[in-house]
Design a protein around this nucleic acid. Structure first.
Lengths: 205, 205
DNA sequence: GAAGATACCGACTAAGCGGTATCTTGTCAA
DNA sequence: TTGACAAGATACCGCTTAGTCGGTATCTTC
């Protein structure tokens, strides 16, 4: 008969969220494949049994992080910002400006969690790829929609394809973050985004 | 007493190159951390003893791949192309055009080996970061230099910072490749690069 | 308050990993 | 021809990994 040290009060939701949060951090720092379940458990003081009660496999945990942590994070920021500006150009510039201003150590060191997972996992696991792709598509769509409305209200140059431009903008952002991360340089990151601002400005009428 | 089945004729250089090539492929397909030495050996029919004769650690092998495979690959293409065009805009457009035209399965599936390693390894290993950064800096410098000469000869708009623009161009390329890879879509990849061409064209006088 | 379900515990397993030790064999200079 | 060393071969080691499983504690329901 073993004596078990269990949590006094149960809280399955909190346990699940703790795991999701810790997994998010661990994946951000080490990548998914190199992410260690043992380390995640150590950082949460959740037991292995509890982990495997909530998530069937490491893979399931990773997919949950994508859908429940990374997705909503991005959705909140971009959707809200572009919704509250009638001029999409101003909204986009503001978003980039925020990224420039809030260039903290985490972004410079670990980059974009979405992009990290894309580069690592999308060729290796179709479910990962689809989960990530859904987020990207939503992101591009939000930007494209804003540009489209901007064209309708005469604030964005006509004759350009909003979908293509939105795709390029998102790609450039990921590129800037990636390069800033490798340079370990806030200024390189900011210089790169500044050029993106110049490009965006050129989309105005 | 063991019976050893050895290669009839020795060829240390070839052995080293075989290892480098196989490691490059394995890293491209699985990432560095998940790259398996056993798999590399299986694909080369080189023995573990031979591997560890040529490379001290897995890490050393990875660093050698960066310096001796990935670096030269990029250097050749970009340096030559921009050197043989007097108009840098035309040179850049041609390079992008080539990328668009030669969008093969490997690029769409596995993306850019340089970018992959950056996102995975640069926060984890300072030597990796520096090796990769050297390549990026060289790349940016080649583009910046071309733009600068273009400004001098009146083919590129003055008043813009060549270094910053070059940085942005490289970032955008990596971004386009990354997004195309996740979309598993040649056309998305091409649409993205086409927008980059539009941007580059806007740099002309 | 008993029963059943849910949540959680932690020792264990099997496989794969990078790396090492010890050996043999090919090469080439003396 | 031989000695020395580089190159290659293979068995093995310690460690970490994701995942399992029998068991226990808490919560819910009746």
């Amino acid at each position: 008969m073993m004596t078990m040290v269990q949590r006094k009060t149960r809280n399955p939701e909190q346990t699940r969220n703790d795991l999701l949060d810790a997994a998010y951090t661990e994946i951000l720092e080490s990548g998914f494949q190199a992410a260690s379940l043992e380390r995640i458990l150590a950082n949460t003081s959740v037991s292995k049994g509890a982990l495997y009660h909530h998530f069937g496999t490491k893979r399931d945990l990773g997919l949950a992080v994508i859908q429940e942590v990374i997705g909503p994070q991005l959705e909140g920021r971009w959707f809200n910002m572009l919704a509250q500006h009638s001029d999409p150009i101003r909204g986009l510039l503001k978003l980039i400006e925020e990224k420039i201003a809030s260039a903290d150590e985490s972004v410079i060191r670990y980059g974009c969690p979405l992009n990290n997972l894309i580069q690592e996992m999308s060729p290796l696991d179709e479910s990962f790829r689809q989960g990530l792709q859904k987020i990207i598509e939503r992101w591009v769509e939000v930007v494209a929609e804003a540009l489209k409305e901007g064209q309708a209200s005469g604030k964005v140059r006509a004759g350009t394809a909003p979908q293509d431009i939105a795709l390029f903008i998102v790609a450039s952002i990921e590129g800037c973050v990636g390069l800033g991360k490798n340079a370990q340089s806030v200024t390189a990151y900011q210089r790169c985004l500044k050029q993106l601002q110049v490009y965006i400005q050129s989309l105005a009428v």
